[in-house]
Write a protein that binds this DNA or RNA. Sequence first.
DNA 1: ATTTTGTGAGCGAGCGCTCGTTTTTATTGA
DNA 2: TCAATAAAAACGAGCGCTCGCTCACAAAAT
Lengths: 256, 256
Amino acid sequence: MVVKVASVQDAARFPGLPLHPRTLKAFQSEFDLSPEALCTRMLQRHRDTIRTQKPHVAVARLVRIVQTTLALSNRKGFHSMSLRHLATASGLSMGALYTYFDSKDTLLLMILGEVSGAVSATLGSPPAALSEDPGKRLRWLLETHVYLTETMQPWFQFAYMEAKAFPKEGREKARRSELATEALIADALADGVRRGRFSAANVELTASLIKPLLQDWYVKRGKYRRRGVLPEQYVEAVTTFVENAILPRGQHGTRP
Amino acid sequence: MVVKVASVQDAARFPGLPLHPRTLKAFQSEFDLSPEALCTRMLQRHRDTIRTQKPHVAVARLVRIVQTTLALSNRKGFHSMSLRHLATASGLSMGALYTYFDSKDTLLLMILGEVSGAVSATLGSPPAALSEDPGKRLRWLLETHVYLTETMQPWFQFAYMEAKAFPKEGREKARRSELATEALIADALADGVRRGRFSAANVELTASLIKPLLQDWYVKRGKYRRRGVLPEQYVEAVTTFVENAILPRGQHGTRP
DNA sequence: ATTTTGTGAGCGAGCGCTCGTTTTTATTGA
DNA sequence: TCAATAAAAACGAGCGCTCGCTCACAAAAT
């Protein structure tokens, strides 16, 4: 499959939105979140349920299965996607599908597992240098979150839309992952407020206002694509918006 | 059904969040958005497909059907809700259901129709006095949107989660309604920027950042209920957050 | 007596899932 | 080098079941 990637230089059409220093590409060379890499980890995690022996075959098939599942589910919903349709669209047979998972729910949980795995692998390990600067820490969080969800957009859209509808294990995994992200934001905010760099009447509530700004990027990805907004521009817009919103009085517009 | 409403005075637990002048109750006495009122309009709009003759019977049954549909769908998804389950839970028979709609999709569209109807009835007619003050106009928009979606929370959650999965007519109705709301915000922003009261590098993008703040209130209503955040407090938090974010440099903290 | 409203077993279609069979791939021995 | 063989993977019709939906009939209201 050929993927067309818009170059960063294309972005000049919004002169009010300068490009952010760290690009999407820089993030992507830091973490390998390609479908192949994700499905390799998926195979490792589910060696017991996946009956295919040879890893290279298993990974190749998993990539096809997962990509097709995400494409079909994100259009019409996971529950509406029949396994017959998945089989046809992914070029496998019904029986072949069932050598990779033992039930439709397992397929869902396998995908959710990689999503929450990717979250803790990226957001879970912020550079140590940031711990003393809440401003940089917050900016790193926002930026990394947008780039992560940009790279795995169909996965995150899937997790957001389908997590509630399915087995208890999946729902709780999604809920915990969501709250963890919000806690990271709240921590950075609280640190900034303590040091007098931020102003927020209620840190938890402010954190829960920032979260939907990050989610909008992958939930409404189509809208932003249609409008020609690049990931780097969205990072810049969200960062400016949030930093102005929590800037202590009298320090307005003094970003380095 | 008895609904327990937290009084506005209960709100003292967040001292940092003063109550907003216009309360939810004031909004609710301005617009009748009770299930009965909504289902009465639903009956009027669908006299041809609803075979029940007596209006008071039809409205009573519609209320039961719609309330149950929203409850079941918002927990597990509309597609996962079987009509048998809906019949049992609403106390009607399979056949009785089909005197109120001619297909499951029609039921979905009937609900979506009332949601977009309510949006244009409330947000579509702002007080004329506001047109000269972009600050008040924006605040009225945010406040009215939160109160509207609070009053019809299950309806809006339903529309948000299910609109994409179903027939073209429903998807487009939802998309148009969403864009219209965003345009209202963008208009107020543009007016404020022109008058030098707001600062925003890109008005459209800023409007699309405000939208998810409003949606979060009804999509994640459970989270805010668990944390004891009242509608009035959320209005206050969003308003402060947004106003600080778009305040021109040097005018920080000068809200009336 | 007549109209209106409600009932729920039954219909065909399509669902998730299985398993006896076929096809493909890898390994072997001369 | 290349059939013969063994191991791995793919196949897809068919199973039991539930789905959305209908309709001959019963009950209730007028």
